[in-house]
Amino acid sequence: MTTPGDKNCWRKIGVWGLESPRCELLELHLHCRNCAVFRNAGREQYNREIEIDYLKRRTEELAQPPKQVDKGRKESLMVFEAGARLALPCELFKEVMKSSPIYKVPHFKHPAFLGLVAHNGRLRLCCSLPVILGLDRQRESDFGFMVILEIQGELIVFPVSKLEGIRRYQASAIKPSLTSEREGLFSFSRGLLENNDVHLIDENKVLTSIKGALRPI
């Protein structure tokens, strides 16, 4: 008879076991990972004796002096892929989530407007950034993640195919794009990064474009 706290109790009477008899602590914790028995068991793993070579490696790592950081103004940008490599300021990002089902809105057809997505119990507009930027149509298989951006107080969901990460750039590293270009992607571009490969998008222009698309005809 296994009781809570016994060896591997989570694999016998817990959620990874037969739950028969069901561990009484599950009533309280709902899941074993919330249980102190489980966590302590995990923490006991840290009691293992450390290997000498690993100790030496860590010694070396800790001895490394920290990199000199620039004192100049920095901009934190999220680099991602949606039809092209794009970047947006980190503060616009409210949340990154896994791709969710998109609910189509009947009798409302605009290529930029994909539908509605449930987020934290609320329905949000879901728009296609590549379509807005005049790039190719997005395929649903490319919807790896969904990013929720807050632009001028509006929460809008955009499917993206890949998130590269947050990069910090000196303001000087951002090259202004050619303002003469009035067409397509360049009309939305605020600047270019990384050998003109990544476009820093003007979020306000995106919002304007969306609003134009959603205006009732």
Binding site: N8, W10, G42, Q45
Partner: peptide, 16 residues
């Protein structure tokens, strides 16, 4: 921290 503990438990389980 919780994830770390779960990982540790996983390693324990694997070991066992």
């Amino acid at each position: 921290s919780r994830l770390a503990d779960q990982t540790a438990v996983a390693s324990l389980d694997i070991e066992e």
